[in-house]
Design a protein around this nucleic acid. Structure first.
Length: 647
DNA sequence: CTTAGGG
DNA sequence: CCCTAAG
């Protein structure tokens, strides 16, 4: 009744009857209830995932009717090779191993914590003559053996650079076990498998980070990325708090114990559990070369609310992308955070051939107790990477160590040409944009956008549920420069139906993984310190407010679902809860002095209508709801309750 | 899934 | 915006 009081003071001319608000007040607050859920969730999780995995496999098998040239032989080839390798070294992360992982890799945390820094992950060459080194050999070659902190001191920095370990005190084998094929034959062949998959480690891994591929700017998300902590995290109190701070090129990721993890995890799993079923493989059309938010993901997260806060990374890539002539024609299989091998970048006349051996990644500071197991270290690194990725990442281009920011320049203009020494060219993986410019009408009060258009637009190009602006939005904004870059992470380029067709090739990747990995609680919002995935704020535009008011006038204040359907049907980013909330704030706004209002000013006219409607519906609680106010003379006349109210 | 409210 | 309790 806060509003009521305030409104009364405003002598708006309304009567604010004491509305017998549904005694929700009797709701009691049950605290500490979630932890219980967690346990249950954790237990159920594995099972669900397993089941899901099975289902996925089936689906993928049936739907993987080879539709592209990459599939055939290469795939088989890949499958075999990988399989051989991994069969020996890896323990499949199936339900069993998951369980083990939960109990086996219980890191012991004490006071001493070592900080590790990971500067970069190395990737295999993508040249034609890349080393086709079997995983085992690869490891040997690079001396990559997971090494824990040998240093007793608090500082133990790990550096993992391309080409091997260059760290001073030890090396962390973060990514190995890749199989690399030729640039043109990479579909089922390339990519990294993030984990070394030592038997014990595999079991300890709640997170495998297998198939992330970045191809010439297109980031392809593995269908099997699991950033979901396995049960061990929760059970052992090994919660991980991923804090991050984006300091331009820096990316700090502190992984510490915290309960945050739990809090984010539980609902996630719940949602996952709920949505593990259907529409998993929905394909999304895309424009401008971007693949749109995947409905599948949406389904995974919040069916109705959309996948706000979800990470586009996660979208199941079942999208087969049409290669635009102007794009590099690289095809890569999924398989680890691999460098996108840019085999070719189109340019006037000449072709620039690039070979990305590694990406420079932002520094990752990791805290791990020296008593932690290697497995937990891996996990920790994994977490850090996950956060990095989940926040969205983008690729940066460095020329002579300098950042090339203008995305519009051609390569030659920038100085990247076949004549140049491409050694000067570098790529970085950076945390995604913390704030994506939203060239939405809401940002511009002056921009007249009527609800109709709003709808049309939405219909024509469904919003990315992530809150990422549409490609067209971006483009229209004329802000292309950086926006382009910023969208990068969300442009999942599914070069070739790998998730499906590869499911076989990926045999070594436990079915579970295929599934589990796909359901990670990724965040969209970069810079989000916690794993929380709050949606980006999207102020209501005047237009929207207008639409909202209109709808409420007609429907009343207790039918948000209808309001949503009526006025925001196609605005996926506006849930009925949002509308309700907005209405709430509108009423509040209308009740305070203009000086106290903030944000985009809402026309007084609208606010008046808000109060009017508010008053009206307060008085007609329920009575007219079914009918709709439009029929009510008071409302139609616009002066709703003036008469009978302010008496 | 919706609503209503508190945070 | 988020989270929850209640329906």
């Amino acid at each position: 009744m806060v509003f009521k009081r305030k409104l009364d003071c405003l002598s708006v001319g309304f009567d604010f009857p004491n509305i017998p608000r549904a005694p929700r007040s009797c709701r009691r607050k049950v605290l500490n209830k979630r932890s219980d859920d967690d346990d249950v969730d954790a237990q159920i999780c594995a099972i669900d995932l397993l089941a899901l995995a099975g289902k996925l496999l089936q689906e993928s098998e049936s739907s993987s009717a080879s539709s592209n040239a990459f599939e055939g032989n290469n795939r088989d080839h890949f499958g075999k090779e990988i399989k051989q390798e991994q069969d020996v070294k890896c323990k499949p992360i199936n339900s069993e191993s998951s369980d083990q992982g939960n109990s086996v890799s219980r890191p012991t945390y004490d006071n001493s914590t070592d900080k590790c820094v990971v500067n970069s992950f190395s990737f295999p060459d993508n040249d034609g003559d890349l080393e086709r080194t079997p995983m085992s050999d690869y490891k040997k070659t690079h001396g990559l053996t997971a090494v824990g902190c040998e240093n007793k001191d608090v500082n133990c920095d790990f550096y993992v650079n391309s080409g091997g370990i260059t760290g001073e005190t030890g090396g962390v084998n973060v990514n190995t076990g890749f199989k690399q094929g030729e640039a043109t034959d990479r579909l089922g062949d390339g990519g990294l498998i993030t984990n070394t998959c030592n038997l014990e480690d595999a079991t300890a891994l709640g997170v495998q980070f297998p198939k992330l591929v970045c191809v010439g700017g297109d980031l392809k998300l593995p269908s099997t990325m699991d950033m979901t902590p396995n049960g061990s995290f929760a059970r052992h109190g090994n919660h991980t708090n991923l804090g991050r701070k984006d300091d331009d090129e820096k990316f700090y990721s502190y992984l510490k114990l915290s309960n945050k993890f739990k809090s984010y995890r539980s609902p996630t799993i719940r949602r996952i559990r709920k949505s593990l079923s259907s529409k998993y493989w929905k394909q999304i059309p895309k424009d401008f070369g971007y693949s749109r938010a995947d409905v599948g993901v949406k389904t995974l997260y919040r069916k109705r609310k959309s996948c706000y806060g979800y990470n586009a990374w996660q979208r199941e890539i079942n999208y087969k992308r049409r290669r635009s002539p102007d794009r590099s024609s690289v095809v890569t299989s999924d398989g680890g955070l691999s460098s996108g091998s840019v085999s070719k970048l189109p340019e006037k006349g000449d072709t620039v051939k690039l070979s990305i051996k590694s990406f420079r990644i932002p520094e990752l500071f990791i805290d791990v107790p020296e008593t932690a197991t290697v497995g937990s270290l891996k996990r920790t690194v994994m977490e850090a990477v996950s956060v990095l990725l989940s926040g969205g990442i983008r690729v940066g281009v460095l020329l002579h160590g300098k950042k090339v920011r203008d995305d519009r320049k051609t390569l030659s203009q920038t100085g990247i040409s076949c004549d140049e020494n491409l050694d000067n060219l570098g790529f970085t993986l950076e945390p995604g944009p913390s704030k994506v410019p939203l060239p939405l009408c809401s940002e511009d009060p002056a921009e007249p956008t009527d609800p109709t258009n709003m709808s049309e637009r939405s219909a024509a190009s469904p919003m990315l549920d992530s809150g990422i602006p549409h490609a067209d939005d971006v483009i229209n904004s004329g802000n292309i420069v950086d926006n382009n870059l910023e969208i990068v992470p969300y442009q999942c380029d599914i070069s070739a139906d790998e998730p499906l067709s590869d499911s076989k090739a990926l045999v070594p990747l436990p079915a579970l993984e295929v599934k589990a990995l796909a359901i990670v609680p990724l965040n969209q919002k970069p810079k989000r310190t916690e794993l929380a995935q709050r949606r980006t704020r999207r102020p209501f535009s005047v237009t929207e407010v207008e639409a909202l008011v209109q709808a409420v006038e007609e429907l009343g204040t207790g039918r948000w679902r209808d309001v949503k359907l009526r006025a925001f049907e196609n605005a996926d980013h506006r849930t009925y809860v949002d509308l309700k909330d907005k209405w709430k704030t509108l009423v509040h706004t209308a009740s305070i002095s203009p000086q106290q209002r903030r944000g985009e000013p809402v026309p007084q006219e609208l606010l008046d209508r808000v109060l009017r409607a508010y008053g009206y519906w307060s008085q007609h609680q329920g009575k007219h709801q079914a009918r709709g106010a439009s029929k009510d003379p008071d409302m139609t006349r616009g002066r709703a309750l003036e008469s009978g109210v302010s008496v």
